[in-house]
């Protein structure tokens, strides 16, 4: 009974420190980093040229560019968030993007299907490919890392086989290209798509029981089973959705570039995983938010595009490389800081 007063005082201090906890939340810290990053680029990356026109980071066009270029990787990161929350991983989303782009190109060009039909079929192919991952992982209980490594190779290989490595589908109708190049209500069209998916995934993960189940499975698969959570069903949903969103990303990609090739989205999975983990989602599952993922995507995108506007970097012509280097370093720093903070938090107690 002696423990009771102590517990009561925790109640009080818990309430008092709510705002502090909120401030120290990972997402808030990441948002602060993002804002600082943006302001720095705005300050150093915006110049006025001789004709008095503002160029560089501060222009609206540049901001739209950032949006356009981050949509596909952003979509993949959204696709991966539920999967990683369950403690799994999907390395195959980049390859699937390539496969779906090629499938879409083939359906419209070789088979001459109307665009909406081809788009729907492509989405179904993506979902089915996600289903293959899900089947191997949930039904046969194989490790996600190796299964999706296999399908990483398989999906890309199928894309190469279909196009014999060289066929590039282009000449898409202007209506379709709108999707990746046009604007609607002031914003790039794919930004709206991205926003919709982001809201959808956010609602799924944070507002439905399914999202709750992802966390529980990530924390403790056994605990989930004993609580009567349908582990297989939830995992299947996460992987199938990842496939579906990767297919959607393929459509956006194809439309933005106006062409579909087998190497579409090569290496995107790495950036997507980086964005998710940078966004504070634990690779072991259970912890993480969609907001964090969005901030992670934004931090990477702004870094990449912002660096390109800095005069120093422009002279070196090394924006992408510098961004990659900094992203890797940022990821390691975030992880190490988290780990050290955890140790430091535990050491006085234990």
């Amino acid at each position: 009974m002696g423990a009771e007063p102590a517990q009561l005082s925790t109640v009080a201090s818990a309430r008092a420190s709510t705002w502090r906890r909120w401030l120290l939340r990972y997402e808030v810290l990441l948002l602060a980093v993002l804002i600082v990053e943006w302001l720095l680029f705005y300050h150093f990356g915006t110049t006025t040229n001789r004709r008095g026109v503002t160029v560089g980071f501060g222009t609206l066009d540049r901001q739209f560019d950032i949006l356009r270029h981050s949509c596909e990787i952003g979509l993949l990161a959204l696709a991966l968030t539920p999967v990683i929350l369950t403690g799994g991983i999907d390395l195959s989303v980049g390859s699937l993007l390539g496969l779906c782009a090629v499938v879409f190109g083939g359906l419209t060009h070789a088979l001459g299907l109307p665009l909406p039909v081809a788009a729907v079929v492509t989405l179904l192919v993506g979902a089915a490919a996600g289903g293959v991952n899900a089947g191997l992982i949930c039904q046969l209980r194989l490790p996600p890392l190796i299964v999706t490594l296999g399908t990483y190779s398989l999906f890309r290989g199928l894309a190469e086989a279909f196009t014999r490595g060289s066929v590039t589908y282009s000449d898409f109708p202007a209506g379709f290209l709108m999707l990746g190049q046009g604007r609607w209500a002031g914003l790039p069209v794919q930004a709206w798509i991205f926003l919709m998916v982001a809201v959808g995934v956010w609602i799924w993960v944070h507002r439905t029981f399914s999202g709750r189940a992802f966390r529980v499975i990530g924390f403790s698969p056994d605990g989930a089973r004993y609580a009567g959570v349908g582990v297989r069903g939830q995992l299947t949903a996460a992987y199938v959705a990842a496939g579906l969103i990767a297919a959607l990303a393929a459509l956006v990609y194809t439309s933005r570039l106006g062409q579909a090739k087998a190497d579409a989205g090569l290496g995107y999975e790495l950036f997507a995983i980086t964005a998710v983990v940078l966004g504070g989602t634990s690779i072991f599952g259970g912890r993480g938010t969609v907001t964090g993922t969005l901030l992670g995507v934004a931090a990477i995108a702004v870094l990449k595009n912002g660096l390109a506007t800095l005069p120093v970097v422009m002279r070196m012509n090394a924006a992408e490389e510098l961004a990659g280097l900094l992203t890797g370093a940022l990821l390691l720093a975030a992880l190490a800081a988290g780990k050290l903070a955890e140790r430091w938090r535990r050491s006085p107690a234990g």
């Binding site: 991983i89 790495l270 980086t274 890797g328 990821l331 390691l332 992880l335």
Partner: peptide
């Protein structure tokens, strides 16, 4: 997996 993902990109 995450550490080597980061060093993959960074290197």
């Amino acid at each position: 997996i995450v550490v080597t993902l980061a060093t993959l990109v960074a290197l």
